[in-house]
Design a binder for these strands. Structure first.
Length: 418
DNA sequence: TGACGTCAAGATCCG
DNA sequence: CGGATCTTGACGTCA
């Protein structure tokens, strides 16, 4: 059982993906961007290893315009050793990665030019994974595509268009149910015909269920049959609904209580769980810490170091409750710990609490800061109190001071990311 | 024609 | 000028 996250990490420096606009593409620019993105990917992999995260989705934006004719750079040759080195790192750590072309890669389109782009895009994805020397357990996840008012024909067209895909793609391809058109029964049917594994997406199944209203355990068991030994452990997608948005929209964080209920229902089913959620790595670590055995209070204390000022800023009451919770060094109250954090972070920001947290963080520099830095800080505080600037301005200044004075305790504080 | 989703680039504004 | 904030782009489908 692995739990992982998709594409980018919150609060981890030097892991961003850069891109550019199509009209500004040049060889020099692309070369620069790809080098940067591969460096970021390397850092992400390193972060995952350090954090005990062994399931990860690589962003399709890794190579900007990777499957477009505007990218005439021979990046496949130029960066082959770089890709191989990152792949080695992934393999050596036992990490499992995947890639997932977005909703605009539509293999079953009736338009030939759209199909051609989808084919090119899928080969690009396979090329990246192949160049990294990754085994066939590292998959490419794809949706069936559009419905075009006739699902049966649209499904048939998907089957037909798979003939345009090289073995390099087909042996990595896995199919996922979507939230609008093709539900889990459709995808299972297609998966069986093509001999391709099926990813069960829990939230999509909620938004777009099939006629047969079965419990998710039923569908996960059905999907399991589609995963052969060469494909590796069965994968599923789990996310929660953002209540304030459209059905299917991902929540900011994984709420731990409902996740634990879900987890208990699949615990013995030997599945890898990919989380799709805004706070990315943070939820992955949360869910890992609440389900993995052999963890101690040290783990929660490390998490607390990252979260504490973000919590203090939202709720002094929850801050105090967590401190009390962490007193017993022989306990491991992971679920209550994260529940308190969720409670705090869901509260609206109040000026008094925000000021209190900012003053706490300022305490790290109070002695070292120059007179000018002090004046700037209190000037910002004053403006915030008078409502002329948002608290983010104060926090950005504090972050700059943290960088300048090398306060490593603060640099990865989520206070600066929320 | 615009919504959908997603992120960062690009553009513009401000002191 | 640097920094903050607003707008656009890239993609395809569908109402």
């Amino acid at each position: 059982m692995r739990i992982g996250y998709a594409c980018l990490a919150v609060g981890v420096p030097h892991t961003d993906m850069k891109s550019c606009m199509k009209k500004n593409v040049s060889m020099e620019k692309l070369s620069h961007l790809i080098a940067h993105n591969l460096e970021s990917l390397d850092n992400l992999i390193g972060y995952n290893i350090k954090s005990g995260i062994s399931l990860f989705r690589i962003s399709s934006d890794l190579i900007p315009f990777g499957s477009s004719s505007v990218n005439t750079l021979s990046w496949q040759q130029i960066f082959c050793s770089r890709l191989e080195a990152i792949g080695q790192k992934i393999t050596n750590s036992g990490m499992r990665v995947s890639m997932h072309p977005g909703q605009y890669t539509v293999l079953n389109s009736p338009k030939p030019e759209v199909v051609q782009r989808a084919v090119d895009d899928l080969h690009y994805h396979a090329f990246v994974l192949d160049s990294m020397g990754l085994s066939l357990q590292h998959k490419i996840v794809l949706h069936i595509g559009g419905g075009y008012g006739d699902k049966k024909t649209s499904k048939a067209r998907f089957l037909a268009h798979c003939a345009y895909l090289d073995a390099s793609v087909m042996q990595r391809l896995v199919l996922e149910n979507d939230d609008r058109v093709f539900h889990i029964e459709d995808v299972l049917e297609t998966g069986h015909v093509l001999g391709l594994p099926v990813v069960y997406d829990h939230l999509h199944n909620t938004a777009n269920p099939c006629g047969l209203r079965k419990h998710h355990e039923h569908w996960i068991t059905c999907c399991k049959e589609t995963w052969k030994p060469k494909d590796g452990c069965q994968k599923i997608h789990y996310s929660q609904q953002d209540q304030s948005k459209q059905p299917g929209a991902h929540s900011f964080t994984i709420s731990i209580a409902p996740f634990m209920d879900f987890y208990k229902s699949v615990e013995t089913k030997d599945v890898d769980i990919m989380l799709e959620v805004k706070d990315k790595n943070l939820s992955a670590i949360k869910c890992i810490n609440c389900t993995a055995g052999g963890k101690t209070m040290n783990t929660l204390e490390a998490e607390w170091r990252r979260y504490k000022y973000a919590v203090l800023e939202r709720s002094q009451a929850e801050y105090l409750k967590i401190r009390a919770l962490l007193k017993d060094k022989n306990a491991y109250p992971a679920v209550p710990f994260y529940t308190h954090i969720e409670t705090a972070l869901s509260k609206p920001l109040k000026q008094g609490d925000a000021l209190n947290a900012a003053q706490h963080v300022w305490g790290y520099f109070k002695k070292a800061a120059t007179a000018n830095e002090k004046a700037v800080f209190y000037g910002l505080i004053d403006n915030y109190q008078r409502g002329t600037i948002p608290i983010e301005r104060v926090k950005k200044w504090l972050f700059r001071l943290a960088v300048k004075y090398g306060e490593t305790y603060l640099l990865d504080a989520l206070y600066f990311s929320f």
